[in-house]
Design a protein around this nucleic acid. Structure first.
Lengths: 340, 340
DNA sequence: TTGTATGCGTTATCAT
DNA sequence: ATGATAACGCATACAA
């Protein structure tokens, strides 16, 4: 049919100049009509809109951005877009910003802070009106670049004592400590952890182990998945921990619900009952957590709220309003279910 | 600390002009040095790089795009970024394009084709070098806009007889028919479906029901979730179907693995065994599918491959190469596991 | 190898 | 209410 077709070059793009010619007005008038119709007489407005329709004019935002020095673009850098945790935040962030006329330039940065710089430069070259990064661990060079850019910067998914600019998130160590205290309250006397290979997950692991360790005679063994969380990693982790430790009657703290799901599955495959033989605590409260059997005890973070708060902070900065507080701690909730 | 701070306006942005002044060369030379270092003498290159370092110069891609009429931007429109199906494709698509110097402008379009037009216009105003859309259902006006834009357009996640330009995906009806044939081969004599509220899911449901119906005496009842797939929706769906029909010994075809997961959970809560009492087939082969108990029989789509193929098609169009075939059918695989 | 002139399609500023 | 003119910061064509 269209086999082997090489597409013809599209029609020359319509400019405001041409729309103006057709409507019998100058290019500036077209610009005004489109940006603020009230600044133009009803008759000319009608003629202009007619010409716009007729030509299928689509304004060139690149030229507009160059002239106005406002790109109406906001950058978003997240470790992974397939991870619901991040994509949920990005969704809330972008929806709020889109309502205010901004578009999102999105990039995945992976979990290696080293690669971040090139991505940041690429984004800054687009002259975004603001930029959102995940986490608070950034190289000095990245911080310098961001500071020099002179735009609002929001660090998401963590809190910091020394934010680059704005910061919206929660205290990872606190969240993990709260999980540990929950486990202690429930009477578990020993614990183990399964942790994904990212810095924040490791920080949570540290918080859990430290807090739990204060109430426990035995050390808290950890399985480091090394990579992204997955059910497979959770299963491997549990199997490995089980092989090397006496887990019975203890609790497993996982750095994400996904890992916890894997732990649940693997534990069952070993004939263990939950929470009778082994208790499990996850992190994130994804949709499936409440539907697992047993339902997963976990730590809930209000993802949409994080995204929205970040967007709101950015918007007030853009609009020159003073933000009440540059760092917003949105906390977390322990969701007690049947698994622990 | 920084309480109530309103951030000072960032330092004036450095231009090639200034870099040139400092390096003792003209603006064009700086431009050349950065775009193709070999076109500049080693000494001046060194001076220029020194000035770039010293000033922290970050090129203005907006100005570059305006001048060169190439934005190095590719638009991507997907229904939802929190759905792993779409985000996996987007990841593969963007990674491949990023390797070639393109950045991704991403928007969620939801599942209502009506809202698409505004989003498309917003994207086209940024003058992307190409645009990726999900699905093949687009309003005439959207098609017109896309055609007039004169850029490569790739429709992902479906195949079409009349693509706007390029098309990479698979035959939804075929995939569903294959699932139906699989079920028939396994000897199931009656079936029901649980379907999410999007057009392609509905189309698959139709394909399954039609094909299965040809080998079955009884009709195939459907539960329409009406909205996005979720475990909760799957549970509700199964409960509703069970209340109104005799499902024993039959098979449930779900429009996604998530729904199937819900069906599995609900079925078990009703004391039913799988596949003994009820068989279940999912769609998508997400990571959890193989780990469920019983492991989920499902239809696998190679998401990364779809995204890469789309990116490759776009790249060859951009580079003026003739594409072998504008529509690429990447098919699917039936993954037989324990649930059916 | 380097520089000059010009244009990309808007918005901002100043007139009328 | 409308228009003329000058940026915006770079790339392209051409000249030296």
């Amino acid at each position: 049919m269209k086999k082997g077709a090489s597409r013809p070059p599209g029609p020359r793009r319509v400019t405001m100049q041409e729309v103006g010619r057709i409507a019998g007005v100058s290019q500036v008038t077209v610009s005004r009509a489109l940006s603020d119709p009230s600044k133009v007489s009803p008759e000319t407005l009608a003629k202009i809109m007619g010409a716009v329709e007729a030509t299928g004019f689509v304004p060139n935002a690149i030229a507009g951005a160059l002239a106005s020095r406002k790109s109406r673009l906001v950058s978003a850098l997240v470790p992974s877009i397939t991870n619901v945790v991040y994509s949920s935040m990005v969704r809330a962030f972008s929806e709020r910003l889109r309502d205010h006329g901004y578009q999102i330039l999105l990039s995945e940065t992976g979990f290696d802070p080293e690669d971040e710089e090139a991505t940041v430069v690429a984004h800054l070259s687009r002259r975004p009106d603001a930029i959102m990064l995940t986490g608070i661990q950034h190289s000095p060079q990245v911080r310098r670049l961001l500071l020099a850019a002179g735009i609002p910067v929001v660090e998401l998914w963590d809190v910091s004592d020394s934010p680059i600019d704005l910061c919206v998130g929660f205290h990872h160590v606190d969240a993990a400590r709260a999980a540990a205290e929950f486990a202690i309250d429930r009477g578990y006397t020993h614990a183990a952890t399964v942790t994904a290979g990212d810095e924040r997950a490791r920080r949570r692991q540290g918080g859990f182990a430290e807090r739990f360790g204060r109430n426990s005679a035995v050390p808290v063994p950890d399985y480091d998945a090394g990579g992204p969380a997955s059910i497979a990693a959770g299963r491997e982790g549990f199997a490995a921990l089980l092989a090397a430790n006496d887990l019975r009657g203890g609790v497993i703290y996982c750095s994400s619900d996904i890992l916890a799901h894997g732990v649940l599955i693997e534990a069952r495959s070993h004939g263990l009952t939950i929470p009778g033989d082994i208790a499990v605590i996850g992190f994130g409260d994804q949709e499936f957590a409440r539907h697992l059997d047993p339902a997963l005890t976990t730590v809930r973070i209000d993802l949409p709220k994080l995204g929205q708060a970040a967007a709101d902070a950015v918007l007030s900065r853009i609009n020159g309003q003073t933000v009440a507080s540059p760092v917003i701690d949105l906390r977390f909730d322990i969701i007690a279910r049947a698994s622990a």
